[in-house]
Amino acid sequence: MSEPQTFGRRAFQLTIIYALLIATALFLLFPLLYGLAISFMTADEITVYPPKFLPDGLNLTSYETVLSRLPIPRYLFNSLLISTTVMIGQLVTASLAAYAFAIRRFRGRGLIFGLFLSTLMIPWEVTLIPNFQTIQAWGWTDNYLGLIAPFVATAFGTFMLRQFFLTIPQELHDAATIDGCGSLRYLVQIVLPLSRPALGTLAIYGFLQTWNQFLWPLLVTNQKEMRTIQIGLNYLLNEETISFNNTMAGVILAIIPTMVLLIVGQRQLVRGLTAGAVKG
């Protein structure tokens, strides 16, 4: 083998790989980067042709305008409260159910598991109208309960946790039971600590899903103070002429929390989904 030649080939390959990585990354990120640039521009800057891709400076007027026109902090607080509560609820209900499916033996287990999975096949739009009627009948419109309650159980999350719990050796359960460890204590003190990666994934996934909801919060909120950030943003589009710099400032404010969550938790998300989606 001639060393210099292989080295040259490797360098060539690396160049192509990095070129591809950078090009695809820029292409994918372009809408966000462009939106970010627009949010720093003045009204004059965004109307010029050919369009500008970089702002003249970090002009924060759009952010000030949006923050003065809409109660963005309140919207963010609503979304944060709802998403966090749903996330915790899902972690609790899914852990309990996954534990029953993965570790306990009981009659009808296959049947009930099938029932859980069947909920994945029932599209949201079929349940939409009756759910809206239920929430209305209970007086839960414009109420956090109406935004939270329908989502605190998750078949997908239960399935994911079950796949993970199945990898915990059954002997551990038998040994703990013989030592007099009750089943709830076994779940809390042994299974859950061992399953931190899967729980982390479910937490991030559940949070993002809830944060990004659109149709349901649109239906069950009317008052301004109860809107989530996704619905609140929509009101920036209802003006006579859309001023895109203000709108983009709103979008950037709305996506910062989830961007941070994703950048911090991305590794976690990948690791947990591996366990859930692939091990069939």
């Binding site: 462009y34 990004n212 589009l237 709108t247 979008v251 989830t258």
Partner: peptide, 10 residues
């Protein structure tokens, strides 16, 4: 991490 709603506006 970008909701469909926010992405639609962009």
């Amino acid at each position: 991490g970008v909701s469909v709603g926010a992405a639609s506006i962009v």
